[in-house]
């Protein structure tokens, strides 16, 4: 791909999603865009880039952007963030919201659904303490294609073996041919919605718990700051934010502070008390 063409696509993808593509990712770009060109009956990347230059075709621009997202996810990814939720956050949430008996959780870049479904399984396991509660799990992502997979709740053998304890597989999945299908009751606990983190997030409402894991790593500093700032406004005063293992707020946003002793967990900078302690 010509440097000019590469730059054009990079700019497009960054403007639309925040994702940064460096020059050493040229091979990635080509291998991801070839299928897009093929699906549209184009001869090759030159024709595709031509069409992007021509602008106008919103569907194409969206498809190109989506093609550049990395959607890898596992159930109970990194274990710890989910243990912390079950052992610390949830009990505190239950006592802090005893009056209202309602809470909302947001998975801000939920990809194929493993993260929200992991949380749904935890809530299901604790159902006895939550009877009569209104619980909401919202999963959003920029990619409509990956959201369709999340909604389908169908996973390969490979996917269900990464992070999902076998007891939970048995309990919450049925196998049909080679596909592991998630339990409809669990599926109904999660709402999915297409949402771009670069857009105004206000419409999503307020949340007690936000998982924004393994997406900020793909953004540059100013974009990270902006997204964190927006998230801080959606968080309840005692709410908590989970970031990915390679992500932090330090040096990026002063809206949050790390929760001591809980790696990867953050609360609002001004909070005197949070659901994490």
């Amino acid at each position: 791909m010509k440097p000019d063409d590469f730059d054009l696509v990079c700019r497009l993808v960054k403007d639309r999603s925040g994702l940064i593509l460096t020059r050493d990712k040229a091979y990635l770009l080509e291998s991801r865009l070839m299928p897009v060109a093929r699906r549209r009956g184009m001869k090759g990347l030159d024709e595709l880039v031509g069409a992007i230059r021509g602008k106008g075709d919103e569907a194409l621009l969206r498809e190109v952007t989506e093609a550049m997202t990395t959607n890898e996810s596992f159930f109970f990814r990194d274990i710890k963030p989910f243990e912390v939720f079950r052992q610390t956050i949830l009990p505190r949430l239950i006592s802090a919201r005893e009056g209202k008996r309602t809470f909302r959780i947001w998975c801000a870049a939920c990809s194929s659904g493993q993260e929200p479904y992991s949380l749904a399984m935890i809530l299901k396991e604790e159902a006895a303490r939550l009877s009569g509660w209104r619980q909401e799990i919202l999963g959003t992502d920029i990619s409509t294609e990956i959201l369709a997979k999340a909604k389908a709740g169908a996973y390969s053998q490979f996917e269900v073996q990464r992070g999902l304890p076998i007891q939970l597989l048995l309990k919450y999945f049925k196998k049909k041919d080679d596909v592991w299908q998630i339990d409809p009751a669990l599926k109904s606990m999660v709402q999915y919605r297409e949402f771009n983190l670069l857009h105004d997030l206000k419409a999503l409402g307020q949340f007690e718990v936000v998982y924004c894991r393994n997406v900020l790593i793909y953004f540059d500093q100013p974009t990270k700051s902006r997204v964190l700032e927006q998230i801080s406004r959606l968080l309840q005063p005692d709410g908590v934010l989970f970031l990915g293992g390679a992500e932090t707020v330090l040096g990026i946003s002063d809206k949050f502070k790390p929760v001591p002793t809980q790696r990867g967990v953050y609360c609002l900078a001004g909070a005197t008390q949070s659901l994490a302690g």
Partner: peptide
Amino acid sequence: ENDIDHIQTAIEAGANEYIM
């Protein structure tokens, strides 16, 4: 062996985890 029946049997017999 990657069907639910086998996994169930293994867990009941005291297996801690199961890799397919």
